[in-house]
């Protein structure tokens, strides 16, 4: 009986340890868990495109900013948010609702200690450490590849999801994702509007909502991938760190027509008012509102 008790006690202690062993305790562990650098060996062009993309720096914002800094700020201080705490050690994964899209692997695969380490890194402006956290190939080609989980189950570990079944592959078996070519795939993060599922709602991207309710409703049929991933481009422009490329992309999508007129307006008898009239007309070929994200 004593032996049985001992086994039960050991099991009670061991099970949580095994469970927590599946999750990353540090930023380095999380980065390693989702490291996709081995993809580069065979997919160098795609990998290079991705390296320049915002998916490769989801916590860095535009031009080196640290977009999560307000959440890391000490509660009650200027610039702090409703998600901030008075001590970095109190920060948990749930204090970073932005992880829903900016680092989805943190929700599934990280301990709260990663949130503490990230908070300390944000306060120290340690960009080298924060830059290790990326939306890697595995995140899109596995973690976010299945949305019909009741019917299709969770993404399988070690499987790479893509546009078609391809069987064996050096990095893992390739299976078809039902949504990989559909806008809803991107819409998982490039969102519908307010995120009301959290205990404090917040609003980030409205883009997929705009696509559904303005573009599709107007007869639009192109997908996000049709425009932003032409020929499989994994830069998925715009890259806001590339001024020239971004201006060119915007100029391609947005047209400006200008008409001018000069004349003298007769306000009342013998009272002419010289006037210049400028008429502008802006049109866009984008399948969503501009600006959005």
């Amino acid at each position: 009986m004593r032996f049985l008790k001992l086994i039960l006690v050991l099991l009670f202690i061991a099970v949580p340890l095994v469970a927590s062993a599946d999750k990353a305790k540090t930023i380095d562990e999380l980065a390693k868990m989702y490291d996709s650098s081995s993809c580069k060996g065979c997919h160098e062009d795609i990998y290079t495109q991705w390296e320049k993309s915002h998916h490769a720096r989801p916590l860095m914002g535009v031009k080196g900013g640290l977009m999560l800094s307000p959440l890391a700020a000490k509660k009650g201080t200027d610039g702090a948010t409703a998600f901030s705490e008075d001590d970095p050690k109190k920060m948990k994964i749930k204090n970073y609702p932005c992880f829903k899209c900016h680092l989805p692997q943190a929700i599934t695969s990280a301990e709260d200690s990663v949130a503490v380490e990230l908070t300390e890194a944000l306060l120290a402006k340690d960009k080298v450490k924060i830059a290790k956290l990326q939306i890697t190939c595995i995140v899109c080609h596995n973690t976010k590849a299945i949305i019909h989980k009741r019917e299709l189950g969770e993404p399988e570990k070690g499987v790479i999801y893509s546009t078609k079944d391809m069987g064996a592959h050096p990095g893992g078996k390739i299976k078809k994702s039902a949504i990989f070519k559909d806008s809803i795939y991107c819409g998982q993060c490039h969102g519908l509007g307010p995120n009301l599922e959290f205990d404090q709602p917040f609003q980030c991207a409205n883009l997929y909502g705009s696509y559904l309710h303005s573009y599709v409703s107007g007869g639009g049929t192109q997908t996000c991938q049709d425009c932003h991933m032409q020929k499989g481009d994994h830069l998925i422009a715009p890259n806001w760190n590339d001024d020239k490329g971004t201006s060119e992309l915007l100029a391609k999508a947005i047209s400006l027509d200008v008409q001018t007129l000069g004349y003298e307006w007769l306000r009342k008898a013998k009272t002419y008012v010289p006037k210049v009239v400028v008429s502008t007309k802006i049109t866009t070929t984008a399948g969503h509102r501009i600006p959005d994200g």
Binding site: S210, Y211, K275, V277, T280, K281, I282
Partner: peptide
Amino acid sequence: SLQPGQAKKETIEF
């Protein structure tokens, strides 16, 4: 914002 399929028109006078 600029909406898909909708022109944004302005008339500005000086």
